[in-house]
Computed example of a mutant assay.
Amino acid sequence: MSLIKWTEEDDGGIRLGLPSDLDLPMAQPLLDSLRAAVRASADVTVQAEGVERISAACIQALVVAARDAAGRGAAFAVATPSEILAEACEDLGLAAWLKQWSQA
């Protein structure tokens, strides 16, 4: 059972709800879910307000998904990123990336 909640929206988009704990073992399942969502829809939103802990590997998975979506011409957004996610991106020098892909 995946801790990542996959929801198909009425408009055909996909919303992925992230769990509160995105530690290192969650990086591969997260990347797999993100890649599947980008392949399945031209509109992917990651719901991130509940993230309380995140590894650099999981942030890397989000960056890869955003790049993949852009390469496919798909929309990708991180909806309401938590303060923890924002701080982790800031620490890694990725604040501008998060701002580019965020929906507040």
Rank of each mutant, 00 (worst) to 15 (best):
D32N: 09
D32R: 06
D32C: 02
S33N: 11
S33H: 10
S33E: 13
L34D: 07
L34M: 09
A36N: 11
A36H: 08
V38A: 05
V38C: 13
R39P: 00
R39F: 05
A40Y: 09
S41W: 07
A42T: 10
A42K: 12
V44F: 02
V46W: 03
V46N: 03
V46C: 09
V46H: 05
A48Q: 01
E49K: 08
E49V: 04
G50H: 02
G50I: 07
E52S: 07
R53N: 14
R53I: 10
R53Q: 12
I54F: 08
S55F: 13
A56S: 15
I59E: 03
I59L: 14
Q60A: 10
Q60G: 05
A61D: 04
A61M: 08
A61L: 06
L62M: 10
V63N: 02
V63C: 11
V63F: 06
V64I: 14
A65N: 01
A65C: 10
A66Y: 06
A66C: 06
A66Q: 09
R67Q: 14
R67N: 13
D68N: 05
D68P: 00
A69C: 03
A69N: 05
A69W: 05
G71Y: 12
R72K: 06
G73I: 06
G73E: 06
G73M: 08
A74T: 08
A74R: 08
A74Y: 10
A75S: 13
A75E: 11
F76G: 00
V78M: 00
A79N: 13
P81Q: 02
P81L: 04
S82Q: 01
S82R: 00
E83N: 12
E83D: 15
E83I: 14
E83L: 15
I84G: 04
I84S: 05
I84H: 02
L85T: 12
L85H: 01
L85N: 10
A86F: 06
A86C: 11
A86P: 03
A88E: 01
A88N: 07
C89K: 05
D91W: 03
L92H: 04
